[in-house]
Design a binder for these strands. Structure first.
Length: 219
DNA sequence: GCGACAG
DNA sequence: ATCTTGTCGC
């Protein structure tokens, strides 16, 4: 079997998609709206079964600590996974799933990096921009950047000398890396991490479960 | 040229 | 991401 990714990522395609990422980044410059009080967050994740993808968005009430709404979308996985270009594979279906959430919410938590990305154009940046909603990237492993010293279970992620996010290692839950997506800055990330209790976001844990459940319920 | 590489 | 159950431990 030949590498399917070659079909999508030869030199010409890769260069064009990189241009697209840079275009978005320059396009949203200055569109950093101030993050208001966060009472409801929406976590979004995608699960796969061959070329079928199911995205699940879970609305989570931070104070009451409960799921308030679930939205799921099934679709064809048209792009293969390629590090640095995850948005091609997951952004379309993630955006559709979040649009299925009816009740209001304050921020979208995306399973993937925000600006902790080679071109500061991670999946969370695309999803937030497309929705016109503040977004936070939450990844389980580092893609780029340098980690600073561990301080109270947290460490800064630096890229070209600038702070782009935080690595977090809660005592109970799994390690993760958070960076701004759209509509919020690094200072807001620190605030958000506090609101979310420092642990791996329950909204994302639920989204992961719901996405996998979606694969099974339909086939 | 050699490794690294979100999900 | 996905293939996969129960089991050891706090």
């Amino acid at each position: 079997m030949p590498d399917q990714s070659a079909q999508f990522f030869d030199e010409h395609h890769r260069r064009f998609f990189e241009w697209l990422q840079k275009a978005l980044v320059s396009q949203i410059q200055g569109k950093r709206s101030k993050l208001n009080t966060v009472s409801t967050v929406v976590g979004v994740d995608v699960a796969y079964s061959n070329d079928i993808s199911v995205a699940a968005a879970v609305s989570w009430d931070v104070d009451e600590r409960r799921v308030v709404e679930v939205s799921r979308v099934r679709s064809m996985a048209l792009f293969p996974y390629s590090a640095g270009f995850l948005f091609l594979r997951e952004a379309p279906v993630m955006v559709a799933a979040v649009r299925g959430i009816v009740e209001r919410f304050d921020v979208v938590l995306v399973d993937g990096h925000g600006i902790a990305h080679p071109r500061e154009a991670g999946l969370a940046v695309f999803v937030g921009a497309a929705l016109g909603m503040p977004s936070l990237g939450v990844a389980k492993s580092l893609l780029v950047g340098d980690l600073g010293v561990v301080d109270r279970g947290m460490q800064e992620i630096t890229l070209d000398g600038s702070l782009v996010g935080y690595g977090v290692k809660p005592k109970d839950s799994r390690r993760y890396f958070a960076s701004p997506g759209f509509g919020l800055d690094v200072e807001d990330v620190a605030y958000l991490l506090g609101v979310l209790g420092g642990r791996y976001p329950e909204a994302l844990r639920q989204a992961h479960i719901e996405a996998r459940r979606g694969l099974k319920e339909v086939g």
